[in-house]
Structure formats: C-alpha cells, structure tokens
Design a protein around this nucleic acid. Structure first.
Length: 319
DNA sequence: TGGTATGTTCCAAA
DNA sequence: TTTTGGAACATACC
C-alpha cells in the first residue's frame, strides 16, 4: 500500500521503528494505558493529568495525518507553545485543556493508547501515530494499531461533539434515565450504546449493566417498567464505578493494565455457567455488536419469547 | 483463511 | 421521523 496519496505531504514520514515488546517494561518509559470505554478513558485521564498538567508543548508530529483535524500544519502551529492546563474526560474522549479557549479532544476508539517518556524521544513504541514533545524534553505518544483514533482541536466555548449525559455525574438520576428511554421505540442495548444519550457506555459495560439489572438486551426501551429502569440506573453506575476502581478491563493483545476482567459476569463468557443461576451465558448479535446475557436472569421480551432471535445461535450469525 | 475485536459514521432501507 | 442493518475505517490475533 502506498501511504503518500492522501497525506498531502504534511509531516508524512515513516513512523519510528517499534522497540521489541519486552523493552517497553524497561527504563523510564511507562505505558499509560489503553482501552476505550468510560472507565478505561478515565484511567488514562487520571494518569495523564499527573504527567501533563503544566507542561508546555514545543512540537507536535503526526504520522497518520488522516486522524487529526484540522490539518497537521494548523494543528501543530496551534499546539506549539501551548501549556496544558488540565486533563479531563468527556464520554470516551480525553480532553487536554490548552487555555485560550482551546481543547484537544482525543478519542482512542478501539485500540488507541498513550505512552509517556520523561526522558524524551528515546523511547519509541509500536503503532506510534502522533508525538507531543515538551519543553523539558519529555514526550507523549499516541499509539493506535487500527488507526481509528481521532485527535481534534476544538473551541472550549463551543464544546463538540454532541454527547449525552455523563452517567457518573449527579445529574444522571433514575428519573433522568426514565425520561431518556420513555419516548424511544428502539431496543435497550443499542440505546445504551448511543453516545448522544449517555456518554461513555460501551459494549462491555452495557452487557454487564443489563445483566445486573435483569434486562434482556432486546427489550424495547419503552417496555421496561419504571422499577426496572431504576435498577438499570443503579447497575450502570455501580458497574462503571467498580470498573474505574479496577482501572478498567484488560482483554487481549491490545489492552493491558486494568483489573475489571475478573469481575465481568457475562461479557466474554458465552456458554459458561451464569454466576447467579448456572444457566449457560448466551451470545447473540445486536446491532452488529457481540452481546452476552443470561437467558434465565434476563427474560426475553414477550414479543420475542420462543422466537429464534433469542434461541441458541452462534454469535457470528446476523439476527 | 476467515472470523472477531472494548468505536463511530455514513448511507440506504424499513 | 425513527430505527435498523450493512459497509467502511485499518490492523492484529487466534
């Protein structure tokens, strides 16, 4: 494949050669984290905050210009000489506060992660897509195997994108969730994944919250009783809070560092016994996402009862 | 080799 | 209008 066609020439050179894997655990270099749902991004943000606040950017390089906006030259000019005033989270975005009404939003998508080296550009990592260099010689790298991650400079006064409520904020109440779901005709799982409604839930924690609330993922949102929505609200907050405490879920080659994987009750447990009732956990596909639930603890909605949509079938099949 | 992946967006169709 | 499915983005692992 040719890299050159779409890069308009800006800062487009070969990315640094990756060090062999074991070297990542030596020396000063430290892996910040990885991962993509709210607890994982929150974990990233907390660690980045300690490392970055007060540091002044002296250079920015992108090795995959398609993932940054505006264009690399504009972005580089805007970032250079900026001091990072704060690091926060909005939904699944890492937000670097730059002062002067500017913010840098970084979305890790599926495989984005940060690496930091206080000693400067000596360390180079696998899949490095962007590097920030600071006045004291330290370097921050955004690494992203699948290149889905996005880095966007936005006006802090006009916050983008349009994201829904923060599920761990005080304003996310059971009543609020009821209102959010009441007028919806869709199924509950895709609605919980909709970032314009609730910002931060992803595939793992949605399945986990639905299990804890005893709600089948295909249940039409408007059919869920008020009492059950209250349970769902509590389940969402509990599972997210627990995952934040555990520093998120570590899964496969792309993600390491968290401890929540040992606490998951249905996600990734297809055909294994439900911890509550011993029924095998079932895997189906909902809105193109792998979906795990216990068919006994999470009763199918009445209109689907007995239908093939909730019967055993391999997760690779379309519904 | 093919199926799958923690995310999102765009389009078409229902 | 709302909802849903499919493809696309791009790569790595099993």
């Amino acid at each position: 494949m040719s890299h050159c066609s779409k890069s308009s020439g800006t800062h487009w050179h070969a990315p640094p050669v990756a060090r062999s894997k074991h070297l990542l655990f030596l020396g000063r270099a430290s892996t910040i984290s990885d991962m993509p749902e709210l607890p994982e991004v929150e974990t990233m943000v907390r660690r980045l905050r300690k490392l970055l606040v007060g540091r002044t950017i002296v250079d920015f390089v992108s090795y995959w210009p398609r993932q940054v906006s505006p264009d690399v030259q504009t972005l580089r000019a805007a970032l250079t000489a900026s001091t990072i005033a704060g690091v926060t989270r909005r939904g699944k975005h890492v937000v670097l506060g730059l002062g002067a009404g500017k913010q840098l939003l970084i979305h890790p998508k599926m495989t984005g992660r940060f690496e930091f080296d206080a000693g400067g550009p000596a360390a180079e990592w696998k899949h490095t897509r962007a590097v920030w260099r600071f006045g004291d010689g330290a370097c921050l790298a955004f690494c992203d195997a699948r290149k889905f991650g996005r880095i966007r400079l936005v006006d802090a006064v006009r916050p983008e994108p349009a994201l829904g409520i923060e599920p761990l904020s005080r304003s996310f109440t059971a009543e609020r969730l009821k209102r959010l779901l009441a007028s919806r005709r869709g199924r509950i799982k895709p609605l919980l994944l909709n970032q314009a409604l609730i910002a931060g839930l992803g595939n793992i924690y949605t399945d986990e919250a639905l299990f804890r609330a005893g709600i089948h993922p295909l249940t039409p949102a408007a059919d869920i009783s008020p009492a059950r929505v209250t349970r769902l609200h509590r389940a969402i907050r509990q599972v997210l809070q627990e995952a934040v405490r555990k520093r998120g879920t570590s899964f496969d080659w792309a993600y390491a560092g968290g401890g929540m994987q040992g606490r998951l009750r249905v996600y990734g447990r297809a055909r294994q016994a439900c911890y509550r009732c011993a029924e095998p956990v079932q895997a189906i596909r909902v809105g193109q996402r792998g979906t795990h639930f216990c068919p006994r603890c999470q009763k199918a909605p009445s209109h689907l009862r007995g239908s093939r949509a909730v019967a055993d079938r391999p997760p690779s099949r379309r519904l």
